[in-house]
Simulated assay, not measured.
Amino acid sequence: MSGFTLESDAFNPGGIIPKKHGYKNGNISPPLRIRGVPENTVSLSLIMDDPDAMGAVGKVWVHWVLWNIPPTVTEFKENSIPSDCLEGKTDFGEIGYGGPAPPDKEHTYIFKLYALDQKLDVDNDSTKKQIEEGMDGHIIAQTKLEGKYAP
């Protein structure tokens, strides 16, 4: 399971996320590459959030929620999502990608990828909380990719 990874051609792990991926600067989702999906995976889920927002807005801010991603998917092209997956509601109140938008200083954004032993039976406009509840007890493996973004 240690070979399960999430990478991006747009930024290195822990590196700076390019401005065009920011909410107010184009809001283009970054390209992502998935490797080493465990054999018994039925679906993948991706959650992007900003734990640094806790200090600025009092909560972890949710930027992107996707689920029922086929386990055969190896990449997300820039500004697109794989077919047959579902997107949920962000803390911007919108469905789909909501790029980094730190209100105060540089924040760290975490893209968390989960390999699941089932597809999730949740509505298309579900929230991170609903996805996490659906994933409970069904996570085979997980990995993450972190990037930084400043206003």
Results as ranks from 00 to 15, higher is better:
residue 5 T to M: 04
residue 55 G to H: 07
residue 87 E to V: 11
residue 135 M to F: 01
residue 123 D to V: 06
residue 70 P to K: 08
residue 19 K to P: 05
residue 100 P to K: 09
residue 48 M to R: 14
residue 123 D to P: 02
residue 121 D to H: 03
residue 97 Y to R: 05
residue 140 I to N: 08
residue 70 P to N: 07
residue 137 G to D: 06
residue 6 L to E: 05
residue 122 V to W: 14
residue 24 K to C: 07
residue 33 R to T: 14
residue 68 N to Y: 00
residue 92 F to S: 11
residue 49 D to W: 06
residue 62 V to I: 11
residue 125 D to N: 09
residue 23 Y to T: 04
residue 125 D to V: 09
residue 20 K to E: 06
residue 39 E to L: 11
residue 76 F to A: 09
residue 90 T to D: 08
residue 31 P to N: 13
residue 68 N to E: 00
residue 42 V to T: 06
residue 41 T to S: 02
residue 88 G to A: 08
residue 94 E to W: 04
residue 146 E to I: 13
residue 18 P to R: 15
residue 136 D to K: 15
residue 111 F to G: 10
residue 94 E to Q: 05
residue 119 K to R: 13
residue 93 G to T: 04
residue 16 I to C: 12
residue 93 G to Q: 06
residue 12 N to L: 15
residue 73 V to M: 03
residue 85 C to D: 03
residue 22 G to Y: 03
residue 10 A to W: 15
residue 39 E to R: 13
residue 45 S to C: 01
residue 1 M to S: 12
residue 150 A to N: 11
residue 69 I to A: 05
residue 103 P to A: 07
residue 26 G to R: 09
residue 132 E to L: 03
residue 9 D to A: 13
residue 131 I to Q: 02
residue 33 R to E: 11
residue 117 D to E: 02
residue 128 K to R: 15
residue 39 E to G: 12
residue 143 T to P: 01
residue 148 K to H: 05
residue 69 I to K: 03
residue 143 T to M: 02
residue 14 G to V: 08
residue 73 V to E: 02
residue 32 L to D: 11
residue 40 N to L: 10
residue 45 S to M: 00
residue 26 G to L: 04
residue 70 P to F: 05
residue 72 T to V: 09
residue 49 D to Q: 07
residue 13 P to E: 09
residue 62 V to F: 12
residue 44 L to A: 11
residue 144 K to T: 15
residue 7 E to T: 14
residue 36 G to C: 06
residue 136 D to G: 12
residue 13 P to C: 12
residue 128 K to T: 14
